[in-house]
Amino acid sequence: MTILDAAAQSKTMTRAWGDLRDGFNKRELWLHLGWQDIKQRYRRSVLGPFWITIATGTMAVALGGLYSKLFKLELSEHLPYVTLGLIIWNLINAAIIEGADVFVANEGLIKQLPTPLSVHVYRLVWRQVLLFAHNIIIFVIIAIIFPQHWTWASLAFIPALALIVANCVWVALVFGILATRYRDISPLLFSLVQLLFYMTPIIWNDATLRQQGAEGWAKIIEFNPLLHYVDIVRAPLLGADQELRHWIVVLVCTTVGWICAAFAMRQYRARVPYWV
């Protein structure tokens, strides 16, 4: 078999999906590595990963309190809104920013340990899910202080969160491969995500725009897909009505994203070890 034949055989959808499947089957490995990442990061720390919880909670209280005063919003409504927005945003933000460096950061393992590439992505996403679980404690505390009107429909946040986690996987795969080949992608994404943070209703809401007479901006911001991702988890936890348009946009983006991920894995999976 020639080198060209071997390269052609590696560029098949079967091998691409096989990498994702084999990587997922190595759950013991990436579950352990993800947990060790957190333990190592906060080694010799008394509070450990709860420092992130404290930092997120402090920011949520500060921004929620400030913006509720500035725009004359009810603190009991705006503080839970901002808190959930920040917690969900941190999960999405990490998938994009850390996902772009996922293969570069694991250069040693990729070159020395013969494992599917997807293992490193699962490890990253699992680590962020653990941090999300720590951060959600903030919302639980705030929900005790400012009780929410939950119904059975509020359980919709469970499939919504699962959908976001599935999106985190394809985002890390696609941007990880691109940023490994083109190192300018990572700083570009960092700048873009910072811009999107202010264009996503996290520390402000529709009422804020209406107060400022900016209905036109509200229509433009609808084209920001992150708005829809945040809302499918936040709305049910706040006891608000679900809007079908958010689910439609997220499902379409999920489908397109996984198609892109499958193509990227098929075409460039075998090149990543050489690019790192």
Rank of each mutant, 00 (worst) to 15 (best):
E222I: 06
H228R: 06
S10Q: 15
K26T: 00
S10K: 14
I141W: 02
N93H: 14
L75T: 12
A240Y: 10
Q242A: 11
V250S: 09
P159S: 06
G108Y: 09
V104M: 12
G108H: 11
I145K: 07
W89I: 10
P147N: 04
Q9S: 15
Q148C: 04
V249K: 05
L91E: 02
L33P: 00
D19N: 13
V171L: 13
D5W: 05
K11G: 00
L227Q: 11
R183V: 10
I220Q: 02
G34E: 03
A8S: 12
A162C: 12
Y122E: 02
A100S: 15
Y229M: 15
L131W: 04
K26M: 11
R15G: 14
R245A: 13
T254W: 09
W258M: 07
G65C: 05
I142E: 05
L196D: 06
Q40A: 15
I3P: 00
P114A: 11
L237A: 05
V276T: 09
M59K: 02
Y274H: 15
P236H: 04
T200A: 05
S10W: 03
E215S: 12
K219Q: 15
I177T: 01
L178Q: 04
F103A: 06
T83C: 10
W30D: 03
K26A: 03
V250M: 12
H32M: 12
F71T: 06
F71Y: 15
I110S: 08
V249H: 06
K219D: 14
R44D: 14
A166I: 15
L29S: 01
G85R: 00
I97R: 08
R43V: 09
F139N: 01
A162W: 11
G23I: 03
G65M: 05
E243C: 00
I136E: 07
N224C: 09
R43Y: 12
A160D: 04
H32F: 13
D101M: 09
I88Q: 00
G34S: 07
A207M: 09
G48W: 06
W30K: 04
Q9H: 14
A133L: 15
I259E: 01
Q211I: 13
P225E: 10
I3L: 14
A240P: 00
E243G: 00
M199A: 15
H228Q: 07
A7M: 13
V233N: 04
D231C: 00
V252R: 11
F223C: 01
H32I: 01
W51H: 08
S10E: 15
R44N: 15
R15I: 11
R210E: 14
H134G: 01
Q242P: 02
K26C: 00
A214W: 05
L189S: 03
L209G: 04
V174E: 03
G216Q: 08
Q194G: 15
A261K: 03
L130F: 09
G257S: 07
N205L: 13
V102H: 08
S68D: 07
R183F: 05
W152R: 02
I185Y: 08
I232P: 03
V272F: 07
T255V: 15
A6E: 14
V230Q: 03
L31A: 11
Q36F: 11
E215P: 00
K69R: 14
A105K: 11
V119S: 04
L117V: 01
E215G: 02
V169W: 10
L117G: 02
D206Y: 10
H120M: 03
W30G: 02
V102S: 09
Q148G: 07
D206W: 01
S76E: 14
G57A: 12
A214E: 06
